[in-house]
Design a protein around this nucleic acid. Structure first.
Lengths: 217, 217
DNA sequence: ACTTCCGATCCTTGA
DNA sequence: TCAAGGATCGGAAGT
């Protein structure tokens, strides 16, 4: 019972004030890892992504947030985003509706809870509580929103979207057409054109990328 | 498509400022009902409980919150609590820990998202967005990946970074090792392990993703 | 997230 | 049947 709670922290958070505070906390044992996704792992099921206000806004604008969220959902049953600071008062030129849209999207569509904290200290305190809940919870399993197997689809889509001129819609159609990501990546330009929305230009561009031998910059 | 979004509001919210604002919103059609649970029904799945800061605190202290939440969970797939105002600055003699405990409990254990709003107006705005998301989804798709580079070398690396657990440095090494992106994507797990930094776990994860047959839509 | 803009792709026409 | 034109869709860029 006297065992400390284990919290696994991504190495990129090492220097953050939050982490310092966690280490000072006698109830916690902090371990650093290079996490492929998320910032704090509270249990096998619960993963926390911490976003300072400005970073949250930036990650919306450059699209990082969506990929991160997709990956969190693929790995953890209960991903949670902690928003640190006042997201509505960053200097960034983002519209209010975009911001609210993002928060709503997380909660309503993705089923990812958002916890607001006002400072690093508060974030650390929240993490302690959340950690206890995640590990000692109530013991019973909670039926969850996301299904696991389906999530490989998302990861596959994520990979395919890396191709030039390929967005969400084309990526989906390609995966449907070819069955797997590997078969998309091995397809010839002619085969690619079999996908609706993919014409000469796109198929050539993709082939060019795939077969490109790296050289001069 | 031009139909307004329907939002069902509990009769006890009739006189609230939030409701007034909802009624003025041309995009919404407001209907009042005596709801057995929750304050706003946004869809068959999504239900919102609005808690002004002081009320939130009170409902924690007298234990009401837990019952309400249990009922919401029983009826709706995705219950959400909107916290209006500054919950940490009510006059009530509640400890910070209890407050954070309640918020953590909602998110971590119950899987109920908490959205913070600073005023009735903001709550109303949030409800509009959430209502749209609940009923129509986004209405478009978000690219999982951010904007793409144009330089072929960089682009190839970018594409490879789409693989799970593969960051910039691993991607670079893979490309050097295999010569082209296509050859990375066609590699077997054993071949992948030939790259420094890629072990059993990562190579298996990658292969699994590449060969994953997508489940049906 | 949301909006706007631009280009590729697709589809119809019409010779 | 095929080429040219315009409508539509989806990706990219910007706020």
């Amino acid at each position: 019972m006297s065992d400390k709670l284990l919290i696994r922290v991504d190495v990129r958070e090492i220097r953050s004030g939050v982490t310092q505070l966690l280490q000072q906390n006698q109830l916690l044992r902090v371990e650093f890892e290079e996490l492929p996704v998320g910032d704090f792992i509270l249990s096998d099921e619960v993963c926390v992504e911490r976003k300072a206000a400005t970073d949250f806004v930036l990650s919306i604008m450059d699209g990082r947030l969506f990929g991160q969220v997709a990956q969190m959902k693929a790995t953890y049953l209960r991903p949670i985003v902690v928003l640190e600071g006042d997201v509505f008062n960053t200097r960034s030129a983002i519209s209010r509706e975009s911001l609210m849209g993002a928060i709503s999207w997380l909660n309503v569509i993705e089923g990812i809870g958002t916890v607001h904290s006002r400072s690093a200290a508060e974030t650390a305190a929240f993490l302690e509580v959340m950690c206890r809940h995640a590990q000692q919870g109530l013991g019973y399993e909670i039926p969850l929103r996301g299904s696991k197997p389906k999530d490989l689809n998302v990861l596959a889509q994520y990979a395919v979207e890396g191709l030039p001129s390929v967005g969400p819609s084309t990526a989906k159609k390609m995966l449907e057409h070819f069955g797997s990501a590997r078969r998309v990546f091995t397809a010839t330009p002619e085969e690619l054109r079999g996908v609706k929305g993919v014409g000469a230009k796109m198929s050539e561009g993709i082939a060019q990328l795939l077969d490109h031998q790296l050289g001069k910059s």
